[in-house]
Amino acid sequence: MTLAPTRGSKRRAIATPAVARRPLGFFLALPPIILILLFVGFPIVLAFAFSIGLTGGLNHVIASIGLNVHEAENWWGTPAAYIEVLSNSRILRDLSVTVGVTALSTVTVIFLALGIGLFLKLRGGRIARLLSGLAIIPLFIPVVIASWAIVTFYSGDGFVRSVFAQFGVEAPVWAFTMVAVVIGSVWTSLPFAVLMITSGLQAIPNAMIEAARDAGAGFLRIVVSILIPMAFVPILIAVTFTAIGVVGSFTVPYFTGPNAPNMLGVSMSNYFSAFNQPQQSVVMAFIVFVIASGIAAAYVWANFRSAKDQGKV
């Protein structure tokens, strides 16, 4: 600085604060947005039009290929396909199974992830680190393999039944039942939840816990009153991503679940490919979308709340 004062000050005069350049930021951010509008937003709008029976334009091809298509007589559409799907008792069973599996898997995943996260935060040590590392492994195993491995593990001649058979106990067959779907969903969702929750818990300063102990709080009290509220946003993010991932999943229930009733992701694919009823399939997609949007709203709210707590909004 002292060696080249003129140069330094000149440079600084030219430099403008980055915030001022609005248009550049906007244009840099545009490509992924366009990609998504084009190949997600647009198809979704198109699909929605198709689901309410508007079969003209780009929907013409699929409407002519598909069977059992409800066509609208007017420009605003018809709820006929929705009525058909929502009055189909088999699909309704699939829907309730989907909600049930999602709820059960999410609760289990969060419970396990919290257990691992708390173990790491409060106890620490090599075992805790090993455990959290272990929980990350499924992130790197393709879901197809994981599903197949789980089916083999819990099948009629699988590990669990083999072990119990050593003691002469007849264990249940879980492969191709909803139990296996829950196990598979938990297995595949665990890494993300563990990463989110452990990093959330690790970010809490130890002094916060010590202050609570100093005030007289025991283990349970610290978890409930200090750790969970302070890691609330990461926990909620883990909840939403787990729930959204499970509610729309296909591979896990397709491999590990029964033929019927199964989750809507599988029925969706069946109706599209096997039964060639694309409209019914799209209607199911929108039903799942509505559920997922409800969960997603919680996520957006949580992020907003955290920004507010930190005084950013």
Partner: peptide, 29 residues
């Protein structure tokens, strides 16, 4: 910039739509 927050949340919406449902709609396009 204008729309920054909307864009961020929009990206997230991609995640909220069930994958199989999305592929079905993309397939029809």
């Amino acid at each position: 910039f204008w729309g920054r927050r909307t864009f961020l949340i929009g990206l997230f919406a991609l995640n909220a739509f069930p994958k199989m449902g999305l592929y079905v709609t993309i397939a029809s396009l």
